[in-house]
Simulated assay, not measured.
Amino acid sequence: MAQAAFEEVVEDFEFLDDWEDRYRMVIEMGKAMDPLPEALKVPATKVDGCASQVWLHPQIDAGIYHFQGESDAMIVRGLIALLHRLYDGLPVSQVAAVDARAELGRLGLHDHLSAQRSNGLRAMIDRIREQAAAAN
């Protein structure tokens, strides 16, 4: 089951018939995110497997998974914002149970992302799962 913040996105997407409007919404979500401090854009937080530059910085507090992220590509920043709504605030023990592919599929993303973007999204999900597993 997705977090309430992600469910809100699903509901918002239901009102947008045109994929271009959905695409714009994802980009706007990315623009609304706080930037990742430059000091956190280091090799340890960089996600390999993405065509663009992507950094994910985990923060585990009392067994709860939080993260910050950023990318140099606007659509990827939006994908990070979606993942943030999906994972941020979950107990680390529940992160692996989230079927991100199915949840994001509810938004119709799979049909509209290039193969490179899909691979990058998969790499980000894998990184989030690894970070939570390491903290669990």
Rank of each mutant, 00 (worst) to 15 (best):
A32T: 06
A81G: 09
P37S: 06
A115L: 13
A2F: 00
K41Q: 15
M29T: 00
D111E: 14
A32Q: 14
A51L: 07
L56P: 14
D34R: 11
K46P: 03
E20F: 02
A135L: 07
I80S: 06
I125M: 01
D21Q: 13
L83R: 05
L90D: 09
A2Y: 00
K46L: 12
D72I: 01
H66Y: 13
D61W: 03
D72F: 04
D17W: 12
L83M: 14
I64M: 10
V54F: 12
E20R: 12
V42C: 05
M25F: 13
V76Y: 10
E7Y: 00
A132C: 10
G69M: 05
I125G: 06
A132W: 03
E70W: 09
G49F: 01
A5R: 14
E28V: 01
E38C: 01
D21Y: 06
H84W: 13
D12Q: 15
E8R: 13
G63Y: 02
L104P: 13
R129E: 11
L79A: 12
A123K: 06
Y65K: 08
I27G: 06
H84P: 02
G63T: 01
Q3V: 00
M1G: 15
E70K: 00
R122A: 15
D17K: 10
D99V: 02
D111Q: 15
A134K: 14
A133K: 14
H112D: 10
